[in-house]
Design a protein around this nucleic acid. Structure first.
Lengths: 218, 218
DNA sequence: CATCCGGGTTAATGGGCGTTAACCACATGT
DNA sequence: ACATGTGGTTAACGCCCATTAACCCGGATG
């Protein structure tokens, strides 16, 4: 019965997970050794096995964890629904941006190392991801008159790629600070969704002008 | 020009590179063994060393190669400049989309396995990437009255994330076909860039948590 | 005081894998 | 016919690394 978790600010376990996430994101799952992870938290090597069944277990817990938190956060924001669908979409975007900005390593892992999981875990993560996407798709379709569902889904995926782009940025401060970055990403996401609407011909060119688009063939 | 698709009978070398790219993208550089790469092209194991100095050399050639082709393609499109800056931006976007759609594995590798390179190669790749980004930044700033350069750069990175999102999509055909996908991505990218413009009324982004950002497309 | 036991330690084990060695079969030009 | 280079082959070497074994120590427990 020593499952004390109450006053534990950062239990050893969480500490390990955090460092593992950072290392995995930096050098890839296969690229980092157990000893390194241990060293990062002050213990060495096989001491990790007092907390986890193995290296795989750490990755699994990380990926399942983030997927669950993302989905839960999304559901919460949808549930407490804003005054309008637009407000809900805003909330979803802000929530995702917080994730992307605060948990970079996890976001990175999320779409990089999924295949290193055991079949069962992988299926679970994929299911959670799918639900998260569908949640967004529903909201987006309520805000924008998007023709087909597959189009909406592709747009959501693309916007995820946009929001998750921060980890790829160069380290130095050549980029906007966190607050401005969040605002910018929000704006970009809205801009993208706003442009998803009609097929050729019809619509209004959102904010841009050259809707010339024409098929890429040119 | 060198759109070599011609009778150039995919030399053994190219064949190896292609399969290696696919495998690296699927399972990560460290996740795939030399024997697998060999098997994928019909020869086995160390036979690869007749064509490459080592596993690292393959990755290096892949990453440097794609970075060069991206930059060259971008420069070409800018050089032959369209009737307007908008046309040039359209061309850049279409070019990048072609890459993302046709060379998925390479696009994936491009921002996933960069750190596995020897110092020299990594520097070279990063330099090419940086030039490619700057090229986009210049064009974007000519099209949109974007306040700061850092903002423009971040926006470009984000749009890259958006355009490169295709590899992350689920395999099955739950998604639009290539032509429609290209058109959609183009539209989304333009929409995002179109939204990058002004600051909120207040000017400096000093404070203010989740800037609710009006800018409702509708 | 004795006993657990959570959380460490270092040493050993064992498999996987990149790379090298040694050897071989053609196709070719002389 | 002969040397030669090209593109393979299989076996062997060595390192790295995840995992396990065996041992240890401090503090609750009782």
């Amino acid at each position: 019965m020593s499952n004390a978790q109450a006053p534990a600010p950062t239990s050893r376990r969480e500490q390990i997970l955090k460092e593992a996430a950072r290392l995995f994101a930096e050098r890839g799952f296969h690229g980092v050794g157990v000893d390194e992870i241990g060293a990062a938290v002050g213990i060495s090597g096989p001491g990790l096995y007092r907390h986890f069944a193995g290296k795989d277990a750490m990755l699994a817990e990380l990926l399942v964890g983030i997927s669950e938190r993302l989905l839960e956060g999304g559901r919460m924001r949808v549930a407490e629904g804003g005054e309008s669908p637009e407000a809900v979409l805003d909330a979803l975007i802000d929530g995702h941006i917080d994730f992307a900005l605060d948990d970079r390593p996890l976001i990175t892992l999320h779409d990089r190392e999924l295949d290193r999981l055991r079949e069962a875990d992988r299926k679970r993560v994929r299911q959670l991801q799918r639900q998260y996407v569908e949640l967004w798709v529903a909201v987006v379709r309520r805000v924008h008159p998007v023709p087909s569902e597959s189009r909406a889904r592709a747009a959501v995926h693309a916007v995820f790629g946009l929001l998750n782009s921060t980890p790829h940025l160069g380290r130095p401060g050549a980029l906007p600070g966190r607050t401005e970055m969040a605002e910018l990403l929000h704006r970009l996401a809205l801009g993208a969704f706003g442009a998803v609407a009609g097929e050729p011909a019809g619509g209004e060119p959102a904010a841009g002008e050259s809707i010339a688009v024409g098929v890429p063939g040119a």
